[in-house]
Design a protein around this nucleic acid. Structure first.
Length: 425
RNA sequence: AGAGAGGUGGCAGAGUGGUCGAAUGCGACGGAUUCGAAAUCCGUUAUACCUGCAAGGGUAUCGGGGGUUCGAAUCCCCCCCUCUCUGCCA
């Protein structure tokens, strides 16, 4: 969430940013928050001064009791009772105001970076660059959902039997290709200086709030209600929450972590014509990269992450393009997001395989994730993350783009040593 | 899962109703001493919020929440977690 101080001191910038997101009623919401904050401070002052007097009286009463002055003590107690009523009333309203304030802040999305283009729909995202040539396919080329059936490497029917729709079973070369991709991605991240993390894939409620999945994306996560835990939608959640409530020593910055996890998304209401095959799943595999950086370094870090992801796609020889998301298409918590899309030759469309974002202090504020600056003052850090990469659509593009006339699939050379084979089929 | 013990500052560890935000030790930082270092000595060493131009002042926090009391780290209730033993188990 945003800091009240930012809303107060940079109101115009915030409002301009929210307009870029087409966020309704921004002005009224911000004014309401500033009003609540003012009331909060007022109540805090009232509470504190009443409590301060009560604390003093309690000491005096202690002294009187010791010296045996019962009557004097009783007199002071009467005054104490009065103060108690005051502190209690102030504390109760304070709790309510703080809750209202927090709820209101939770509803305000992050302020977009100045480079974020205007726009409401994905069509208005800015294409930053394109790489690679779209392949020429054989005449009888097929989409990946036909190829996987023919090759018998990914089985939706079986997944349907044991779990349900959107939980495919990877078999034989399909399973080995998954493992190979995961290893390739992890090794590449290690080479780039990231530290590998294996986090839990169930998280508690506090972690969900920390990175912003809760409260607004409640319905997107699978909820294990018996233990009140959530299945992670991305490794971002546990890996970033590692640093919740921490003050990081400056010399440890930036923190660069990577991790492979399965990811679980309910994707409620998002099933349509374009979600066949591997295009959208309830469970999928992903290697994530996460950075925690000083504010002044975070945009360079974001560029570095995008460059790293591009390097992966180039080694896989997948044509891709980099998009700078417009205000209307950006995630709630992000200040700037680059999406990377690969060309799916048989479907003749771009598939999103990665999203890299800088959240600035939006997550860090919830996480209470800080460091000490040169003046020894605690400051919020910036958090960033990106997929490097999500597997299913990579597999879809690899299959479609590399299908041969004889029905086999040629795999990019970089994967051979990880797979133990050079082609599928 | 059952029984027992316990959760205190960066760490270790005292504190069982009053001047305790908390002894002491270690660590860290600053200074003295030294040619320099070790040792020694002196000092500093949490976070958030309120107030103030500032210096400062105030409030809260001893796993979390609630309660008793003029006053709670200390007493009571609920929850969470850790350790030991027993059981179960990859």
């Amino acid at each position: 969430m945003l800091q009240v101080s930012v809303l107060k001191e940079q109101t115009d910038r915030v409002l301009a940013g929210l307009a870029k997101r087409n966020f309704p009623n921004a002005d009224a919401e911000v004014q309401r928050i500033l009003g609540l904050d003012q009331r909060r401070r007022q109540l805090q002052t009232e509470h504190d001064s009443a409590q301060a007097e009560a604390n003093k009286l309690a000491q005096q009463i202690g002294g009187l009791m010791k010296s045996g002055d019962k009557a004097g003590a009783e007199t002071l107690k009467a005054r104490t009772a009065e103060l108690k009523g005051q502190t209690k009333a102030a504390a109760e309203e304070l709790t309510q105001v703080e809750k209202d304030l927090q709820d209101a802040l939770y509803r305000i999305p992050n302020v977009p970076h100045e480079s974020v283009p205007n726009g409401r729909t994905p069509e208005e995202n800015e294409v930053v660059r394109e790489w690679g040539a779209k392949p020429e396919l054989p005449a009888d080329a097929q989409p990946h959902w036909e190829l996987i059936k023919k090759l018998d490497i990914i089985d939706f029917e079986l997944g349907n039997k044991i779990t349900g729709a959107g939980f495919p079973v990877y078999k034989g070369q399909g399973a080995r290709l998954q493992r190979a991709l995961i290893n390739f991605f992890l090794e590449q991240a290690l080479d780039a200086g990231y530290t590998e993390i294996q986090p839990p894939i169930l998280i508690n409620e506090a972690s969900g709030y920390g990175t912003g999945q809760l409260p607004d994306k409640e319905g997107q996560m699978y909820h294990a209600t018996a233990d009140d835990l959530y299945l992670i939608p991305t490794a971002e959640v546990p890996i970033t929450n590692l640093y919740r409530d921490e003050i990081i020593p400056a010399e440890r910055l930036p923190i660069r972590n990577t991790g492979y996890t399965p990811c679980f998304r309910r994707e409620a209401g998002s099933w349509g014509a374009h979600v066949r095959g591997l295009n959208r799943l309830h469970q999928f595999d992903k290697v994530e990269i996460v950075q925690i950086a000083r504010p002044e370094d975070s945009y360079a870090a974001l560029d570095g992450m995008v460059a790293h992801i591009e390097g992966l796609l180039q080694q896989l020889n997948l044509p891709y393009r980099v998009l700078r998301l417009c205000g209307g298409d950006m995630g709630f918590t992000s200040a700037l997001t680059f999406d990377l899309e690969v060309w799916s030759a048989a479907q003749q469309r771009w598939l999103e395989v990665s999203s890299a974002s800088n959240f600035e202090t939006y997550q860090a504020n919830r996480l209470k994730l800080r460091y000490r600056d040169e003046n020894n003052k605690t400051q919020l850090l910036h958090t960033l993350n990106g997929s490097a990469l999500a597997l299913p659509r990579i597999v879809a593009a690899l299959l479609e783009n590399n299908q041969q006339a004889d029905g086999t699939i040629k795999l990019p050379e970089v994967l051979h040593r990880y797979c133990g084979f050079q082609q599928l089929g």
